[in-house]
């Protein structure tokens, strides 16, 4: 495009956005740390970055943090896995068969509008505080993005492309591999990105309630103990996991479906 040799841009120009972001984070942490030079520090009420960092290092070194995360991961994997299977299957049927969607859309809308989290106490009382209760909460919360997105993805399949492939002698298999899957998959992955956040809510709800282990329990317990440095360390760990999961999926979307860039 350019008809002149573009002169090399300086490093700061090119990475301006990232640098400004890092700068802002640094300022935020420094200000947080520094504010207690003026304001009296009460470690039962607040914490500060150096203490949180120490607590985080200790929690990792002792293996406590990893163990809590591993315990929470089990119901997450079950609940989320079930949500993928059930949600995608249901969504595809609803997208493909108009009648099914007529029949199920109102119910889905009602379910989706209800704060299903409100059923958590019931689920916990019924299934107990173990893996199954948490997995069910996670499933209920994270299944809807898969249903809605798979449905939208199937509806968005371009009938013209189906005709193109058919007219060139494509088989049913070609139809699925070359048109339908590539059209629907981006929607499902985008749904997964939303579902991850809702699944994490499910873990926390389940473990705040009545668990005896897991990362949500750890946060609640450190709160009860007024151990704010360790509580912040756990919150930070969840933040990192949430960002890695969502941004990771976003990155995978861009890498796997480059034709959707800019949408």
């Amino acid at each position: 495009m350019l008809d002149e040799a573009a002169p090399r841009q300086s490093f700061t120009d090119k990475h301006r956005k990232v640098l400004l972001g890092l700068l802002a984070v640094a300022i935020f942490l420094a200000a947080w740390q520094a504010v207690f030079l003026v304001v009296p520090f009460n470690k039962l009420f607040v914490s500060k970055p150096d203490l949180i960092w120490d607590a985080l290092v200790k929690l990792i070194a002792s293996g406590d943090l990893i163990r809590d995360l591993a315990i929470s991961a089990v119901p997450f994997v079950y609940g989320f896995g079930a949500a993928v299977v059930v949600g995608v299957a249901l969504g595809i049927v609803m997208g493909w068969r108009e009648r099914v969607s007529y029949a199920l859309d109102p119910i889905m809308t009602i379910f989706y509008a209800s704060p299903l989290v409100a059923l958590a106490p019931l689920v916990i009382v019924f299934f107990g505080v173990g893996v199954s209760g948490k997995a069910i909460i996670i499933f209920v919360l994270s299944v809807f993005p898969f249903i809605f997105n798979a449905q939208a993805g199937v509806r968005a399949v371009d009938r013209l492309l189906i005709n193109v492939v058919r007219s060139m002698g494509g088989t049913e298999r070609d139809l699925y591999l070359k048109v339908i899957v590539p059209s629907v998959l981006p929607y499902i992955v985008a749904g997964a990105r939303i579902a991850v956040g809702r699944g994490l809510i499910g873990i926390l709800v389940g473990e705040f309630f009545a668990a005896s282990e897991g990362i949500g329990y750890a946060i609640a317990r450190f709160g009860d103990l007024f151990a704010l440095d360790r509580m912040f360390a756990c919150i930070f760990a969840i933040m990192v996991i949430a960002v890695v999961l969502t941004e990771g999926i976003r990155w995978a979307e861009r890498a796997a479906f480059p034709w959707r860039a800019g949408q």
Binding site: V25, L204, F208, G223, L228, M239, A242, L245
Partner: peptide, 23 residues
């Protein structure tokens, strides 16, 4: 550019984690 890291991080994190702190 400056607020982006905060918005991304807080938006990805279930706000529920802050509940014990807010209590």
């Amino acid at each position: 550019a400056m607020l982006d890291p905060f918005i991304t991080a807080f938006n990805a994190t279930p706000r529920l984690v802050f509940l014990p702190l807010l209590m």
